[in-house]
Design a binder for these strands. Structure first.
Lengths: 248, 248
DNA sequence: CGTAGGGTTGACATGTTTCAACATCAGTGG
DNA sequence: CCACTGATGTTGAAACATGTCAACCCTACG
């Protein structure tokens, strides 16, 4: 077996051979179109944990696809408060919110040592004009994010702390399954503070809920990894504690 | 002056003469492209309050632009809980989240008697392939929504009840200003229950906060209209009560 | 005038934050 | 190898904001 670094090098080079092509931009592109897209993609050096891929306010020059590892996006509002907008895993695209005015509206930071595919937007833009299939794929991906954001707003707004944590764990698990990784063992690559920020809770509460779920035998927490022992119970808890909607 | 109904009729017919063209899809399109877009737009009969434009799960056939009046989008999650995702005003587009899989992921409902421009997606799709400027416009609009959603998640997550109401009022006011309408007098076309649902609060709390703000002399509430008396105080309150972010 | 839907207000219960102490772990240098 | 240190995570007690439940008010409308 080739050394790991070389393996990744090779995978990074071509979308056609990438195991993530059905999650990522290339999905639904025929081999001819794919080849053209491939030529735009630049897979650079590994990015260390805590390193910024792009910064809020910066001009939009590239969008990024997670190759391996993970990232978070962070937004700082007018008053200086910081909000984590999402966590990103292999196949996810970073930077979509920059198309509005050619400037990034959030920052992206690697959670661990990770690899990303860099795609220059001007060239992508030109290619999109050329390839209807790519245009469609792009719009679909953006629309998908839109729809996921809706789901998140729902979670954030309507669920109590246990519901939020449960939803998050199930969500991370589901995304692992999509990538063909063991869905019952979820690594928490981010810090507790990140989790807390993302879910709009205090980190003490995150801690408490995790231990409560563990004591209930629903999950097993071992430092940065959560094993889902009873998925049904977790699902149950993710919806319990959600408020009843007032009649419209 | 022509009767109102006739006036609107006329306005609805052509994007070129629409006062909202710089907010809406037509922005940045030259007159030639605009003409082609115009031909797709169908401005139908007035839509009564509480009427659904499209329903969650339904196939995506049209997207809609608010011509006048207002609308809300609602999403019902797996567990049957209902969440209002947004309020929409003239020039706003409804239906973007349907591009992901050609199905609507939320329902759209008119808040009052309103007019909408209906745009068939298949024809739009074809036209987008033909007109790069339209494609770009579409992507930008979607990206913009993405970015606004981020802002909303921030508000929802980090602010207390007073902060949420204040943010909402300022937001509605800002959007009125964008449309050249008096920004200090904000009509609340939606019910208190809708506000509560959108902001993830109970309607009792909405009520309490509104009267509290009124007693403080920041706003004046008269049934379905809020007058902003002290914008600075409102801004102050919209950021106060926001949590300090934990250090990453 | 009476009814119904929407909105307001009050008293109480509860979950989450806050503040503070403590535990754990990794890395560093003696 | 161990003691130190700082960063990270856990736990506890008390304060506080918001939810809950119930009563009440108001306005529109038949």
């Amino acid at each position: 077996m080739a050394p790991l670094s070389q393996q990744m090098q090779q995978l990074s080079e071509t979308c056609s051979h990438c195991s993530l092509r059905y999650l990522c931009l290339p999905d639904h592109l025929d081999s001819h179109d794919l080849e053209k897209l491939e030529r735009l993609v630049d897979s650079g050096a590994p990015v260390l944990a805590e390193t910024e891929l792009f910064a809020q306010g910066e001009g939009l020059t590239h969008i990024y696809a997670v190759r391996n590892g993970s990232a978070k996006t962070v937004r700082i509002d007018e008053e200086g408060f910081e909000q984590i907008l999402g966590f990103y895993y292999p196949g996810d695209i970073l930077g979509f919110d920059g198309f509005a005015d050619q400037h990034h509206h959030c920052s992206a930071v690697a959670l661990e040592t990770s690899h990303f595919c860099r795609i220059p937007v001007d060239q992508l833009d030109a290619l999109v004009d050329e390839l209807p299939s790519l245009r469609q794929r792009l719009v679909r991906l953006m629309s998908q994010v839109l729809s996921e954001d809706g789901r998140m707003m729902l979670t954030l707004g309507r669920k109590d702390s246990e519901g939020r944590i449960s939803s998050l764990l199930l969500g991370l698990s589901r995304r692992r399954a999509l990538r063909g990784m063991p869905a019952s063992s979820v690594p928490l690559n981010m810090k507790r503070a990140d989790l807390a920020n993302f879910l709009s809770m205090r980190l003490e509460t995150v801690s408490r809920v995790l231990t409560r779920l563990q004591r209930a035998g629903v999950i097993k927490v071992s430092q940065n990894r959560v094993d889902i022992l009873d998925r049904d119970a977790l699902r149950e808890r993710s919806s319990r504690g959600a408020w009843v909607a007032d009649q419209s």
